[in-house]
């Protein structure tokens, strides 16, 4: 079976060194990654993100992210928006802490029982947002090849990353492939492994394979409802050529 990349949510934590809320942000993020939503989330290293990590920035361009900030300066949220794409959700620890005044961290180094309970509640809010985001259809950016490499005014500092999304925890990219849709080149994420997987399915009826192809592509790519027919036709043409070439085109 082909190991198809799964849609995940990236969590970007501020990790603010100065404040106990930064420690809460960091610990809550780790708990989500390790305990609450292990299979559905990855973390993106904020300092590396800011220093110009192309892989981290590319991930956030194609997959939804949650920014977790310790204080109202919102460094994680602003960095994500500035260098990659607007986060799908924002969590601010100081706002959650205001709802639970009895839960106070002992220090920025030692959270203590109150701080740990606060981190647990923050983690639960992050996990709830993860569930909400994954329940929605993909809002990944539709990349038309003519737009690639052109700076977007709203995203200052955007790099010229190839249309490849990288999952930090896996260290592998999600490949993109150009497909002509109604004569216009469109970059389709994960098409190659999807087609590989369909070929591996064997002798399914063409109609069934065609529907399955479209459904799998939609997991990773936003397809306008009114253009589904055009995409289905283009994808099927691509798949037939791929299958005829022995799965190596």
């Amino acid at each position: 079976m082909v190991d198809l990349p799964k849609r995940k949510v990236g969590i970007i934590s501020c990790s603010g060194e100065e404040l106990a809320e930064g420690t809460v942000s960091r610990v809550a993020t780790r708990w989500v990654l390790e305990r609450l939503r292990q299979e559905q989330t990855v973390t993106l290293c904020l300092p590396l993100f800011l220093a110009g990590g192309k892989e981290e920035r590319a991930f956030a361009k194609f997959f939804p992210t949650i920014a977790v900030d310790g204080c109202p300066k919102l460094c994680a949220a602003r960095a994500t928006a500035a260098y990659s794409a607007e986060p799908a959700a924002r969590i601010v620890v100081s706002e959650i802490a205001a709802r639970y005044p009895e839960l106070k961290p002992e220090s920025r180094r030692q959270l203590g029982p109150g701080g740990e309970e606060l981190a647990r509640r923050v983690a639960e809010e992050i996990a709830a947002r993860v569930d909400q985001i994954l329940a929605q259809p993909t809002r990944a950016k539709l990349v038309r090849l003519g737009e690639m490499g052109q700076p977007e005014p709203a995203h200052a500092g955007q790099d010229d990353a190839e249309p490849t999304a990288v999952c930090s925890c896996q260290g592998g990219g999600v490949p993109a492939r150009a497909v002509l849709v109604a004569g216009s080149p469109v970059s389709i994420l994960a098409l190659e492994p999807i087609m590989q997987q369909l070929v591996a399915f064997g002798d399914g009826a063409d109609g069934e394979l065609r529907n399955k192809l479209l459904e799998m592509v939609k997991v990773y790519n936003p397809i306008p409802a009114e253009q589904e027919g055009l995409y289905a036709e283009a994808l099927w043409r691509e798949f037939l050529a791929y299958r005829q070439g022995g799965g190596s085109r």
Binding site: C14, G16, E17, E18, L46, L50, K73, A76, A79
Partner: peptide
Amino acid sequence: DTVCLSALVM
């Protein structure tokens, strides 16, 4: 003393 690295860079 220490500062928040993210705040510095932002």
